[in-house]
Design a protein around this nucleic acid. Structure first.
Lengths: 280, 280
DNA sequence: CCTGGCCATAACTATTCATTATGTCAGCTC
DNA sequence: GAGCTGACATAATGAATAGTTATGGCCAGG
């Protein structure tokens, strides 16, 4: 049993998890499928437990895999930080606006790591409605906003596509004819695209619950009120969607980052921006 | 430039730093000197800056090396945690008593990492006089004590030797005939062994300053009041001892861990114990 | 001036890793 | 239900990698 976990293997692992399949992760990393298969196997033998359930339609995490994932993400994030900002004692203040779905993921963790290693830097994370976000951006209270591209308060400096997944509550019948759907009430811009994908699959639906917060949506799904379309990071294990479901496939969302022009050249904000970008 | 820092290289790096020499690190890791030389070089090329000043008497950290070190230590600590406690959702409470010199090192950082990954666990770190420590141990407020072996409140479960180093303030003449020495005032049990090593080298000395806290000792040394014997982790860069100094070589200290018998079998305390042990 | 400790370099070797090629399995289509 | 498709596993080959031995330079101490 190896003494340390190799970062290369951890990188492969998180990529496999993110892509949901060994083959896709292989192409994403510029390698072949057997190479990734081998790496995952090696990581499993280092940990001593299987990390993935293999199936002919892809892979899902085992219990051990779920346990390892947050460690792997933090190790990679620290390693990337060490490579870029290594200790340059950043100071100043940086406000970050996040889509609420992202504020619940491991992203704030990475920002906290960054703040801890730069005691002179002050990071503030904000998550609110699009209107309030734009105001904060215009007033210079947040310099960086990571959100859906159409909702950004400025032109995107870069973008990234993320898949959506169905979150299915306990006891919900996914075949129910008017499908009970749990929605964000605000101007969530993937709301329409989700409903469109239902209609183009000829599924009738009804709004079972609306909430303007992620915790509200999650609670509703957990309580079995219906299904919701969420980023895979925010799914609780019990809500995992079984790929072969009767639900239509969901569109990707396109996230982007806007940066306030006046913050150009600030080293702290550079560092935070690359930290956000690294989160894929 | 590699995307991630390989843990194997980081392991080599921290070992080299700890041992103060590439050759010694090589034997410590069970490899040869050229292999370690190569690894350090590879890490340097990954970071893009030299990490070590090489000299015929060993190596010292460059600025970049000092910046990388804490990242490397945290990454290795997380990796080791992932291998052992991976996510087993530990809960409960654990009190840890630390020698003050250790409470200032990267050790509390590792404990904080552990606490953060186990939100249900409550860790309390205590650093106080030997008498108060024994009382806390007897009353069950601390289950683990890491201290010098003679001062432990119970039998050591394991021990580890650490070197001492001279901390030399700016402008202090190390050849001064009554050597000005800064000491811990309490019952610091390496106090006597340090003074013995001076006497056996026929050096006369005088107490220039006494303090019962590490910060006090450090401040005194920083102010140029004299020299002190400390763990290398606690030396500030400006105090680095130039090995070839006129000061006698210092004995090692022997640290050990005592664990309260009633805590036997508690998984959280097991985890904290191995975390402490990993810190070498 | 020689010796010993330490690091760098070079040449060689062994291992490791990724690739190509092939096999197996499950689900889907017709 | 036969055949197709997509996904992962396995095996064998070849290239890149990392470790070892051997050697040289440098500085300090005797």
């Amino acid at each position: 049993m190896a003494r340390d976990l190799e970062t290369a293997l951890l990188r492969s692992f998180v990529t496999v998890v993110r892509e949901g399949s060994i083959s896709r992760a292989a192409t994403a990393l510029g390698h072949t499928q057997p190479a990734l298969s081998q790496q995952v196997r090696k990581l499993e033998s280092a940990v001593g437990r299987p990390l993935l359930h293999r199936s002919p339609s892809g892979v899902t995490l085992t219990r051990a895999g779920e346990e390892l994932l947050p460690y792997a993400q933090r190790i990679l994030s620290l390693s990337a930080q060490a490579l870029t900002e290594a200790g340059r004692a950043l100071t100043g203040r940086c406000g970050v606006g996040l889509l609420e779905d992202l504020a619940a993921s491991q992203l704030p963790q990475a920002l906290a790591d960054l703040a801890r290693l730069h005691p002179g830097a002050r990071l503030e994370v904000l998550s609110c409605s699009n209107a309030a976000m734009r105001e904060a951006y215009d007033e210079g209270r947040v310099q960086l906003v990571l959100d859906e591209v159409p909702d950004l308060p400025g032109p995107p400096r870069w973008t990234v596509r993320r898949p959506l997944a169905w979150a299915i509550g306990q006891g919900v019948d996914v075949a129910a004819d008017p499908l009970p759907v749990v929605l964000f009430s605000g101007a969530c811009s993937w709301r329409t695209s989700v409903l469109e994908s239902l209609e183009s699959a000829d599924r009738r639906w009804r709004v079972a619950f609306e909430s303007n917060s992620l915790v509200g949506v999650l609670a509703a799904v957990r309580a079995g009120l219906g299904v919701a379309a969420l980023l895979p990071t925010n799914l609780e294990p019990a809500m995992t969607c079984h790929d072969t479901d009767a639900l239509p496939s969901l569109p990707d969302v396109e996230l982007g980052l806007a940066r306030h022009p006046r913050s150009e050249g600030d080293p702290l904000i550079d560092a935070v921006e690359t930290a956000l970008r690294r989160m894929n």
